[in-house]
């Protein structure tokens, strides 16, 4: 994140204790840069929705401050909220309204004058055009989620919160959602999303935050995270075991494992190795290979190991 540019979301010392006594957020500090896609990861009950709902004005914080585009979310809530769109975790829509009416309602609610052209385009982009006069209750769950996204985008927000946008949606809608997020980013919209699908964060996010038990335990550029914490390995299963790595294979920095049955190369950062040359050399040494595997630890593994370390 470029430290010279003022963050579009600035969170300082934010805490939340619900009336029930449950502590959902320990003091959280976080800056989110304009135009970035930020993925918030964490197990159930970690405090992701609480964090988002505080920023959006649905939950009152216990202490701390948040500014959105420089506006304090409590003192200048009008200016702050006008910039923010939210797709909440739960599918909650009116039943009897039409798609067209509900999206226009949202736009008005957020203080924007009617703009039928924009709303029509929005519905088209979300493949909802042919449903515009349908009552919401007649739509499928996936369609309803599209409607909720349309509502969140109805007032042309600069910051979009997606709380588990792809929970329970099919592959096609998921891909559409990813495309949508990318196209929003191209237009300078900041997107903050939570997800349980790590591949989603891996696919889309610029930065990743990991939250566990109300504590932000890590915030990192996704690339850095994958590079420093993600291991890439090449595993060669040998036809017959070796007792030591032959010196001829020195340049490839191999390790013997599985009782001499495997040769393992661990990739260092982005540097890749010449696998073809390695295989050629091994065959010239008459070392037989039964199988070959590559393995890259996913964000998921990184995440699981992080959370269990902090548990």
């Amino acid at each position: 994140m470029n430290p010279d540019i003022a963050p579009v979301i600035r969170i300082r010392g934010l805490t939340k204790r619900y009336a029930s006594g449950a502590v959902a957020l320990k003091p959280v500090d976080l800056d989110i840069a304009k135009g970035e896609i930020f993925a918030l990861l964490g197990p159930n009950g970690a405090g992701k929705s609480t964090l988002i709902n505080i920023i959006c004005g649905i939950v009152t914080p216990s202490s701390g401050s948040v500014t959105a585009d420089g506006h304090d979310i409590q003192r200048e809530y009008r200016a702050a909220r006008a910039k923010i769109g939210l797709v909440p975790q739960e599918l909650t829509t009116d039943s009897f309204e039409t798609v067209w009416a509900t999206v226009n309602f949202s736009r008005g609610l957020f203080g924007k004058p009617a703009n039928p052209d924009y709303v029509a385009r929005l519905l088209r982009d979300l493949s909802l055009s042919d449903k515009r006069n349908a009552r919401i209750m007649s739509l499928s769950g996936g369609m309803k989620r599209r409607v909720m996204i349309a509502k969140a985008l109805s007032h042309e927000p600069e910051i979009l919160f997606l709380d588990e946008p792809t929970a329970g949606v099919d592959v096609e809608l998921r891909r559409d959602m990813w495309n949508l997020v990318r196209s929003l980013r191209e237009r300078g919209v900041t997107v903050i999303l939570t997800t349980h699908y790590i591949e989603e964060a891996e696919e889309m996010a610029d930065r990743v935050g990991v939250i566990n038990k109300g504590e932000l335990i890590l915030v990192e550029e996704k690339r850095t995270l994958m590079k420093t914490l993600g291991k890439r390995q090449l595993v060669l299963h040998l036809a017959s075991p070796l007792s030591a790595v032959p010196p001829e294979l020195g340049p490839w920095r191999l390790e013997l494992s599985a009782g001499g049955h495997e040769l393992v190369h661990t990739v260092d950062g982005d540097r890749s190795i010449d696998v073809a040359a390695l295989l050629e050399r091994m065959s010239s040494l008459s070392i037989g290979i039964r199988d070959l595997q590559t393995h890259q630890s996913s964000l998921e593994e990184i995440f699981v190991s992080l959370v269990s370390r902090h548990a």
Binding site: R78, S106, G108, F110, G111, K112, G188, V189
Partner: peptide
């Protein structure tokens, strides 16, 4: 999606569109 208009400084003192909605 049209790009969001960057920080129009207009202050919203009464959200009449919202009330009307």
């Amino acid at each position: 999606f049209p790009s969001p208009r960057a920080g129009s400084g207009k202050r919203l003192d009464f959200n009449h569109h919202g009330v009307w909605a």
